[in-house]
């Protein structure tokens, strides 16, 4: 659903009550959003996503701006031991060198695809925080410098959703996000499979919802890949799963 939290406002509340504010910055990265500067205490990342950006390396980060928190977390870090290996650290170093240019182009591609999806008759809703129609567009614009390249969209039927997933080729049906390869996922069966059905459906994660992580391919090639898979649905063809 791509909800956006107002970090500065939340930080004022959490500070007043003495709570730690932890912000997952995986989707936007510090290129577009700097939660620590907005008052967050801890930033968490799946570094596997945009920071790594090539769908080839797993990594995670905790980032802090306070020395006492740093000391406490360093103690946990060295004791529990899930540290990143030297080789994978090196891969991340290499990947981060191109972070800004990747983010810019992926966002450009995402905007193009979101606008195309908006015009599609079999697409009921497009959730992309870069669209002025998104309910959290204004807060996104105020607190960050970009919108990233994650889109979720609701198709007209389960049949269309399954058709898209089973027929895409250039776009690949795989779990993860943020990489140079465009990936499509079925949140209901993948990223949110462990969330109880009622809870999931209350949030709109249903059998019609698809999630797209837009990569660095040429946008028109991605649209050429997606277009026939959506159009075929409901045209008398049976599901082929």
């Amino acid at each position: 659903m791509m909800h956006v939290t107002d970090i500065a406002e939340t930080a004022r509340l959490t500070k007043r009550h003495g709570l730690l504010l932890i912000v997952d910055n995986t989707f936007l990265t510090p290129y577009y959003l700097k939660p620590l500067e907005l008052g967050a205490d801890i930033v968490i990342h799946s570094g596997t996503k945009y920071l790594g950006g090539h769908n080839d390396t797993l990594a995670g980060f905790l980032v802090v701006s306070d020395s006492e928190l740093s000391e406490r977390l360093r103690f946990i870090f060295k004791t529990t031991g899930a540290c990143l290996s030297p080789f994978h650290s090196w891969l991340l170093i290499r990947c981060i060198k191109t972070l800004a240019v990747r983010m810019d182009r992926q966002q450009e591609n995402a905007m193009r695809i979101a606008q195309w999806l908006l015009t599609h008759e079999r697409v009921r809703a497009v959730h992309y925080i870069g669209l002025p129609s998104h309910p959290h567009y204004e807060v996104s614009k105020r607190q960050g410098t970009g919108f990233g390249s994650m889109i979720s969209f609701e198709t007209d039927s389960e049949e269309t959703a399954i058709r898209v997933l089973s027929k895409v080729s250039l776009i690949q049906y795989a779990e993860s996000l943020g990489g140079v390869e465009t990936l499509i996922t079925y949140p209901m069966l993948q990223t949110h499979a462990d969330i109880p059905k009622e809870e999931r459906e209350a949030k709109g994660i249903n059998e019609r919802l698809l999630r797209l992580s837009v990569g660095l391919e040429y946008a028109e090639d991605l649209i050429s890949c997606a277009a026939p898979t959506i159009r075929w649905a409901g045209c008398g063809q049976k599901k082929s799963l």
Partner: peptide, 10 residues
């Protein structure tokens, strides 16, 4: 920030 810790996964 002042410190970041790199983990083997998110």
């Amino acid at each position: 920030g002042i410190d970041a810790m790199a983990f083997s996964s998110g």
